[in-house]
Amino acid sequence: MIANYKKINLTKLVENIAFSQVYLLSNSSPYEHSLRVSLISNLISREMNLEKIQRIDLYHASLLHDIGAFSNEVSLLLEFNCRKEMNLENHAYNGYELFRDVPFFETTAYIIKEHHNENTTNLLSRIIFFADEIEIQIRSNNFTKPKEVQAKAVSLFKDKRTFKEVLDAFIAVSRNDAFLFLLKDLNELKKENSNLVGDRFEILSSEELNSFAKSIAKNLVDAKSEFTKLHSIDVTYTAVSIAKAMGFSPMDCQKIETAGFLHDIGKLFVPLSILEKPDKLSGNEWLTMKSHVYYTYSFLNSLGLDKEIVDIASFHHEYLDGSGYPFGLEGNNLSILQRIMTVSDVYAALRQQRPYRTDRLKHDDAIEILEKMAKNGKIDMEIVKNIPYDLLMLWEY
């Protein structure tokens, strides 16, 4: 076992995933809703003197509570009258499914699962249930006075005995105008959330980090679209196989494995309409598509990961001749592990189905294209020569 430990900021991971809803849906309302629900939940949890770990779990779950909703459901979730016609527990269960197998998020997943179950025994789920209802009411009725909000909360929850403690805490924290000011100013709201809760860090071994990164790739990144299904896993498999064939150390192979799993996390910020467009992308659409590598860079840096892993993951569209993106780096600024990731990403993309190409290319055809790119000075020929032929086994799904 390689004794190498990393610290990762799980709260920043959650905040980034929550923020990606703005890009996924081209609509900031779901994100704004999750922010307001998180503030109400955090204020209640502080008033109830919950333990810090509970409050952090609650914050994470409140930011992600609607993550399981399909795009055509989200606008309906935010409308009081439309919600009456929906089975609200469906998206709650979908959110649970996304996170239940992600290390460190088992508790968060269960809170999400129960957040529309009025009879749940989970206190944190009840708090989100309450905060979710109150946020919808405040926005729907455009309340401008704390007493109006409190009166509505009392009318909704006074007869629900299991919510008495939550209701009492809410009445205590919503007495003044500052409560409504915060709900209207999202920048101040974010600051207040940070002050109320703080970040959660975990110390992971290299093996644990790999397992964590793989679960993020599988459950969140590759699951976003049918055309990205297994892509992160395939790129990683390819990159590690090349690195082993070239004689890299186990530690270097672990670095490229972690980076491979996370290299496309920035695609969470690319709308599905662009990811799955079967036609040629317009200029602005292509710019948005290319932005995913910058978002990978920004996202992974915020987690506190090692710079080497961040750069291997983020530079997978940089070319030796400087014609790549997002930074236009040239060969002397690209490490061998970064170059391996670039080749692996291109190889995997050629072998997989895409919206604009229904057939997967055969191994030999993909190698021919890669060799042409190498001769044109874009990628490293030595790396192309070290793509193992037995990678063919990977594509027999």
Score class of each variant (00 low, 15 high):
198 G>S: 10
55 R>P: 01
369 I>K: 12
263 H>F: 04
73 E>M: 14
354 R>S: 10
166 V>Q: 05
25 L>V: 00
211 S>T: 12
164 K>W: 07
98 L>Q: 14
144 T>A: 10
265 I>M: 06
388 P>F: 01
162 T>C: 08
229 K>P: 02
72 N>P: 00
295 Y>F: 13
123 L>V: 10
175 R>E: 15
290 K>L: 08
177 D>V: 11
335 S>I: 05
144 T>V: 11
145 K>S: 08
357 R>W: 05
335 S>W: 02
181 F>S: 15
53 I>C: 10
155 S>M: 09
328 G>E: 03
296 T>I: 06
238 T>V: 13
254 Q>L: 11
129 F>C: 05
119 N>T: 09
213 A>N: 02
266 G>W: 03
89 E>C: 09
365 D>K: 12
212 F>R: 03
334 L>V: 06
48 M>C: 08
124 L>Y: 07
317 H>V: 03
242 I>F: 04
243 A>V: 01
324 G>H: 10
308 E>Y: 01
296 T>A: 08
153 A>C: 07
198 G>K: 02
134 I>E: 07
242 I>R: 04
99 F>R: 02
65 H>W: 01
89 E>H: 08
303 L>I: 06
55 R>S: 14
41 S>P: 08
266 G>Q: 10
247 G>E: 10
207 E>G: 00
30 P>G: 02
120 T>R: 04
59 Y>H: 15
218 K>Y: 12
281 L>S: 06
103 P>G: 07
21 Q>K: 11
91 H>W: 03
268 L>M: 14
166 V>A: 08
177 D>P: 06
348 A>H: 00
127 I>R: 06
252 D>K: 12
134 I>S: 08
6 K>H: 15
384 V>K: 04
349 A>C: 03
327 F>Y: 12
13 L>K: 01
199 D>Q: 06
19 F>Y: 14
166 V>I: 15
130 F>S: 04
32 E>N: 13
268 L>F: 04
299 F>G: 10
184 K>N: 15
269 F>N: 13
213 A>C: 02
371 E>P: 06
142 N>D: 14
148 E>C: 03
318 E>G: 07
397 Y>T: 09
149 V>H: 04
294 Y>A: 12
342 T>Q: 11
29 S>W: 00
272 L>H: 06
333 N>S: 14
153 A>K: 04
241 S>K: 13
154 V>R: 11
278 P>G: 08
142 N>M: 14
193 N>A: 00
394 L>N: 13
347 Y>K: 00
59 Y>W: 10
94 N>A: 09
239 A>D: 09
105 F>G: 06
111 I>A: 08
126 R>A: 08
316 H>W: 07
202 E>N: 01
254 Q>V: 00
